[in-house]
C-alpha cells in the first residue's frame, strides 16, 4: 500500500525547435492518494495526465512542487502500464516479464507465469511480441506491471489504442488482476465510462493541469458498464465534466 502526496506540482516544457513556445502541462496540482484504492485521473487531451504519471514514476522531473510516492517510508516500487505495451521486441513474452525482475530465479519465473495465466497468455510465453496481437501485447504489459509486486500501479490510458471489444476485454482482465492484488492504482484516462467502471475515486484534471474535481465512486465490484447504477454515476461525472468545460470556456472568454 503506497501513499502519493503531490503538492503544488507544476511542469512547464521549454520551447523547442519545432514549437517555439513554453507549454504549461501542469499548473499547480495538489492531491493525495493513500490506501488500496483505484484512482482514475480523468481529463481531456492536454490536461497533463501523462506528464503527471511520468513525474510520479520518476521518468520526468517537475518544474516546481513536490511529489512523494512512498511505501513504509521508502520510495514505492512502481508498476507502469503505458499507452503502448513497450515490450522488448527481441525478447520473448516470458523474458519481457523477467526483464523487470531483479533476479531471474525459478520463483520469478513461476510468478511471471502466474500473472501471464491471469491475463490468459501463459501458452504464448515463448513467443515474441511481434507474434502477438496489440491486445495480447497490452495484456503482457498489464501482467508485467503486477509482476514487480508494485506498491503503486500507474496506468496511462492503457486501452486507448484498442478497439472497443478488445478494450472491454482488457478492462475485465485488469479488474480481475487488481481485485486479486488490490494495489494502490493511479489510472489515467479520458474515457468517463472506463473511469467509472474501474475507479474508487475520480480526480478530474482540466486543461492547464489543475485538479477541478474529486469524485468518490461507491459502487460494488466487479462492475458491469451496463448496470443502471454505473450508468447513473457515469451521467453525473459527465455533467461535472461539462461544467468543467464551461468553466474553462468562461475563464478563457473572461481573459
Amino acid at each position: 500500500m503506497a501513499t502519493v502526496l503531490i503538492e503544488n506540482l507544476t511542469k512547464i516544457y521549454p520551447p523547442t525547435a519545432t514549437y517555439p513556445h513554453r507549454v504549461q502541462a501542469l499548473g499547480g496540482v495538489n492531491m493525495s492518494v493513500t490506501g488500496n484504492v483505484f484512482v482514475a485521473v480523468l481529463g481531456p487531451s492536454g490536461s497533463g495526465k501523462t506528464t503527471l504519471l511520468n513525474i510520479v514514476a520518476g521518468v520526468e522531473t517537475p518544474t516546481s512542487g513536490s511529489v512523494r510516492a512512498v511505501h513504509n517510508g521508502v520510495p514505492a516500487q512502481v508498476g507502469y502500464v503505458f499507452q503502448e505495451p513497450r515490450l522488448l521486441p527481441w525478447r520473448t513474452v516470458l523474458n519481457n516479464m523477467l526483464y523487470v525482475q531483479d533476479r531471474k530465479s525459478d520463483r520469478s519465473r513461476r510468478e511471471a507465469e502466474f500473472y501471464l495465466t491471469m491475463v490468459g497468455l501463459n501458452e504464448v510465453a515463448h513467443l515474441y511480441p511481434s507474434q502477438l496481437s496489440a491486445g495480447m501485447q497490452q495484456r503482457v504489459g498489464i501482467a508485467r506491471a503486477f509482476l514487480v509486486n508494485p506498491d503503486l500501479l500507474l496506468m496511462d490510458e492503457p486501452f486507448s489504442h484498442m478497439d472497443a471489444l478488445t478494450g472491454r476485454s482488457l478492462r475485465e482482465y485488469l479488474q480481475r488482476v487488481w481485485l486479486h492484488t488490490r494495489k494502490t492504482a493511479l489510472f489515467v484516462t479520458h474515457d468517463v465510462s472506463e473511469a467509472v467502471e474501474l475507479a474508487d475515486r475520480i480526480l478530474m484534471l482540466r486543461p492547464g493541469g489543475v485538479v477541478f474535481d474529486d469524485i468518490p465512486i461507491d459502487l460494488p465490484r466487479p462492475r458491469n458498464p451496463d448496470d443502471p447504477a454505473v450508468r447513473a454515476v457515469e451521467r453525473d461525472v459527465l455533467r461535472r465534466f461539462d461544467s468543467m468545460e464551461a468553466a474553462v470556456r468562461f475563464g478563457a472568454q473572461a481573459q
Binding site: V59, E84, L88, Q101
Partner: peptide
C-alpha cells in the same frame, strides 16, 4: 527511448538494462 523510460520507471537492474536492452 520509450523502452529506456519503461526501464527507468520499473527501476530495472543495471545488469538487465545492459544485457537485455
Amino acid at each position: 527511448p520509450a523502452l529506456v523510460e519503461m526501464s527507468k520507471a520499473y527501476r530495472v537492474p543495471p545488469r538487465n538494462r545492459i544485457v537485455d536492452l
